[in-house]
Design a protein around this nucleic acid. Sequence first.
DNA 1: CAAAGGCATATGGTATACCACAAATCAATT
DNA 2: AATTGATTTGTGGTATACCATATGCCTTTG
Lengths: 238, 238
Amino acid sequence: MSIGDKLSPIAESFTLKDHTFSVLRAAILDMDIYRPDADLRLDERKLAESLGISRTPIREALARLAQEDLVQIIPRKGVFVCRKTREEILEMVVTWAALESMAARLATQNATDGQLAALRRFAMKHSSDVVRADIEEYSDANIKFHQTILELSGCALLGRTAEGLFTHMQAVRRRTMGESDRARRSVADHMEIIEALMARDADLASRRVREHTMRLHDHISKTWNRLETLSSLRNAAG
Amino acid sequence: MSIGDKLSPIAESFTLKDHTFSVLRAAILDMDIYRPDADLRLDERKLAESLGISRTPIREALARLAQEDLVQIIPRKGVFVCRKTREEILEMVVTWAALESMAARLATQNATDGQLAALRRFAMKHSSDVVRADIEEYSDANIKFHQTILELSGCALLGRTAEGLFTHMQAVRRRTMGESDRARRSVADHMEIIEALMARDADLASRRVREHTMRLHDHISKTWNRLETLSSLRNAAG
DNA sequence: CAAAGGCATATGGTATACCACAAATCAATT
DNA sequence: AATTGATTTGTGGTATACCATATGCCTTTG
């Protein structure tokens, strides 16, 4: 064995542009953009100064974020984090449902018995989180569950497309979870989905995933209003 | 009415960056990237010179194209148009199927009788194109048909997401159409889809759209090989 | 003549300077 | 005092210069 085999490339092709993209993306997801008084403004020059780099890589990162609809660039006005409307959020859920239900359909063909058994063990292990009212923990498990179904489809693009939507919904989840009633129903849904997958019933698995996700759709549809009106009231007052 | 109402902003907030993005995108779609000897290289400086602008807006446009997976930027190597592998193309078709079948499902709820009647008239009008072996014409109508279903869903995001995939598939279509046998089957499929939509049968409409698109999947799966191997032979020879 | 190393060149990455437009501020005028 | 217009300031847009690395050519050397 030569010495070369032990040397891996040092941060191969690292670029500030890509790094900035990741950093900004994470930062945006981390901020609670639906807080009425949230500062949605991103200042290129301030960012550049904060990161200790020039505006150029910042701008290229912002261009990519804009392409992902995470920010909106208004020429000579500013760069703003996109706040999704209720309708846009509902559409994201619908699109998510489309992707994941297809994933479930494919998973009945492509997943191995072992993979499905592992998924079942995982789901059962975390079902107790709900009982313990450990919603935070359950929420993570919930996310993992759905991502796993997308993976088991064997179609990477389904997962990647959904991931883009997921990014946006991260902020939304903060406002939709916390009701243990919904969580309990969710656990039951998950077990039924796994059951359908193991039965290799494509239509049933697909339907159950879709209906499960559409229940989130209906829930948001009913409860998001309160938050929206709260925001606009505040804006009107200011 | 004041005179201001008649005056619309002149090319409001036009930016070279956005313009370049559109131009490059169109140019990429226009070139036959699967021709074995196609030049996949994009030179920032040459592009800048051709368009008579500096590299900056070019680079920001390229960053966005990269985000859409239309080009790949390799630091210090170059910018290259992405050539999709057979597997990636198949995944795009599957994802497309997921989106459009959900669109069809929603369309049974959201489309008006008038809209569906119009869609039927449109489909019937162009069904004769196949008989006349006017495949070029039919292909356009085919695209329009599917886009309409996405629109009738009432969920704009489904359409936008699908559009991104569609961009990539434009180049693929050149290599998959031209067989009037498939076209004839396509016409029959379309009429059955419309029938299901008009019957407001969500499950049926959804299934028919999915199966229709998956037939394209199977077709590509069987025929794309020939082209791939042709390419690699050529590469190996060179 | 072959191989190794240096050198030239080409390419994307980054920094910086300047521009155009928009908005806010302030001043002059009615 | 209100309104209009100029001016200042702040923002993103663009151009340009320079940097770092990858690559291929060419020289050197054995």
